[in-house]
Design a protein around this nucleic acid. Structure first.
Length: 321
DNA sequence: AACATAATCAACCGCGCGCTG
DNA sequence: TCAGCGCGCGGTTGATTATGT
């Protein structure tokens, strides 16, 4: 319950690490493992608190840390996971090999967040930053959002991402507005939606609502259907949950202890490797085709997505084996 | 070249959880 | 049951670097 007194101790060095300190820490962990972080600084001859040592190791010195820019795929994975998990950076990091929670958090705050805002998408809710009553006024934002997929140049295996779902919601909202107005407006829905979402990006990729397995049939034939039969956002979200779309969970470090891995929420589905018997192995625990609903049950916050997914999960799950 | 501002990211802080005695 | 300890997590800070004027 109580706070660790570790960092309250006086006389311990703070601030940037010197190369000498780094080397001491690396040497010690190579020889003995980290063991108790609290005891480590003394054993390693470091005038630091254990917390500082742990942070330095996990965020910077770990041998499996991946350096360099995030790829478009990594970025998309972060966005998708964030839409489901919220600011659960460690959980998100569990899906990105070699990336630390701190790195992902920084990348989110400095890059992705801004990008989403520019696209007119609320980075917290992953919903378009517009209201239903003013959909048409938000057309510039919609257009920007529509180009988002193209900008990211996504992996084609990703069927629908959070942004696409947001687009679907907006499209739905627009149609609702138009439908409710019940006027013979000159507003050409088919034409407009194609312009909004691009000719080969969004509509063509949406599966037929009546047949979720049919990926060849998009919604471009919307004008053949009554408006009220148009897919609801809830239904569309289901397609986001392609189990192939998120990489399997991986350990944040080959040196992670068993108890560290235990901190990850998906307890039931993890397999642990005994890293102590083989320290060089990549301590990978896999997520064997875990349905998205299960992840959500464990990890999702009380976000918009959870509400939607709970509803979706109560229906027959098209991707369950 | 000098300064101001923005962006980046390593590191710190404090909270809360799980374990243990 | 409860309190202390150790640890991990998410939020925040501040030093450094990049970019603009």
């Amino acid at each position: 319950m109580g706070r660790s007194p570790c960092c309250d101790e006086s006389g311990l060095k703070k601030g940037p690490w010197t190369p000498e300190e780094d080397q001491k820490l690396i040497n010690h962990i190579r020889k003995h493992g980290h063991g108790s972080w609290r005891a480590l600084p003394k054993q390693a001859g470091l005038n630091r608190c254990g917390k500082s040592c742990r942070l330095r190791w996990t965020n910077y010195l770990r041998p499996d840390i991946k350096r360099g820019n995030f790829t478009a795929e990594e970025e998309q994975t972060i966005i998708n996971l964030h839409s489901l998990l919220g600011n659960k950076w460690s959980s998100i990091a569990g899906h990105l090999p070699g990336r630390t929670d701190n790195e992902i958090k920084n990348y989110w705050n400095t890059h992705i967040r801004k990008k989403l805002i520019q696209m007119g998408i609320d980075p917290v809710t992953h919903r378009p930053r517009t209201d239903h009553l003013n959909v048409l006024a938000a057309l510039p934002q919609l257009l920007a959002a529509a180009n988002f997929n193209n900008l990211l140049n996504l992996n084609q295996n990703i069927q629908l991402d959070a942004t696409s779902v947001a687009k679907a919601q907006l499209l739905h909202s627009m149609i609702q507005v138009l439908s409710n107005n019940n006027t013979s407006s000159s507003f050409d829905i088919h034409h407009t939606t194609n312009n909004l979402f691009g000719q080969s990006s969004f509509l063509e990729n949406l599966p037929n609502i009546e047949n979720p397995y049919d990926q060849t049939q998009g919604l471009s034939h919307i004008d053949d259907q009554p408006l009220d039969s148009f897919s609801s956002p809830i239904r569309v979200v289901a397609y986001q949950h392609d189990q192939n779309f998120i990489p399997p969970l991986i350990s944040t470090s080959p040196d992670e202890s068993k108890e560290t891995q235990m901190m990850v929420k998906n307890k039931e589905i993890m397999k642990y490797n005994d890293h102590t018997s083989n320290p060089s192995s990549t301590s990978t625990f896999t997520q064997d085709h875990q349905p998205w609903c299960d992840i959500i049950d464990d990890e999702a916050s009380d976000s918009y997505w959870k509400e939607i997914i709970e509803q979706t999960c109560s229906e027959p799950w098209p991707f369950r084996e």
